[in-house]
Design a protein around this nucleic acid. Structure first.
Lengths: 156, 156
DNA sequence: TCTCCTATTGAGAATGGTTCTCATTAATAC
DNA sequence: GTATTAATGAGAACCATTCTCAATAGGAGA
């Protein structure tokens, strides 16, 4: 019986197929790392973890595939201001979609997703208005709050 | 009689003073460029424009001062995904604060700010909740919508 | 107005995350 | 299997940004 995790990975593999991309070992390993991890990793960190599973992996391959995965929507990337792009597995479902609280000082990231229902309604309405007004096809959004986390707030 | 623009610049100069930063020619010129321009420029573009006014300006000086201006809140920076940080003069007032529509294909940026009142109310409430829940001091937020602009939508 | 102190600058070198190149390998179609 | 060609690994290259350091110039006080 497939767990939730394996079925999410299976969906990812299927999507790769739909885009005529080969299902290679590096791609599986990278997706696997992103799927398992709870934090937002940069390319170097993903490379390090993936290398433990697949030691001959190259860093360039990690970059190439992250770019691909972002392009076909399986992975999202974002920037917290430390010049290293961070990546997370795409969360399309109602339950798992979330936004970020980013600490300006230590660059840590907190996800939040609870009580997000009115946020969703609000955004849907907003996107509809903006699309019409600017003739712009909105595919995604990014809501980040910047400030000081509980630790850094007290040492500031 | 001071125009709106000159008074905004004067406020900026005052703020530099408050932070014990000298009011140097490069800083004036950079602020002046950012104040006048309607688009979101990257460091290179700011350097190019500022050099026309102050030809001996160095690129490193532009980077250093943009960092300073961001730190003291006179300038905001953000990223559209082309690996070049963009900068805009900080818009703190109710009338001028805005968010972005970013085209994934041509990296163009549209500001929107109209009918933003309910957005502001929504965000204020949200920030209050998040601050309490995560003991996080929210200082700023970033709302960007990504997608395809009217031009790119049709050539896709 | 002059002088001093030191923050700031300009130029070029250095850094480092990311991308490119190219010979080699391996995933898929037949 | 075999052929085709997308994908890979290694290292070089790229390029936005930061660093270094001697020279310059704000601005406080005399």
């Amino acid at each position: 019986m497939p767990t939730e995790t394996t079925s999410r990975l299976n969906l990812s593999y299927e999507r790769l197929n739909n885009y005529c991309c080969r299902l290679t070992r590096p791609r599986q390993v990278i997706l696997d790392v992103l799927d398992k991890v709870d934090r937002h990793l940069n390319a170097e960190q993903i490379y390090k973890r993936a290398s433990e599973i697949y030691p001959t992996l190259g860093l360039a391959t990690v970059y190439r595939n992250l770019e691909l995965l972002v392009r076909i929507g399986l992975v999202w990337k974002f920037d917290v201001g430390d010049d290293k792009t961070r990546y997370e597995i795409a969360q399309w479902s109602r339950e798992t979609h979330h936004h970020h609280l980013i600490c300006k000082k230590c660059n840590s990231v907190i996800d939040y997703s609870e009580s997000i229902d009115n946020e969703r309604d609000f955004l849907r309405e907003r996107e509809k208005n903006l699309s019409r007004k600017y003739n712009f096809k909105i595919e995604n959004h990014c809501i980040d709050f910047f400030g000081l986390c509980s630790k850094c707030k007290n040492t500031d």
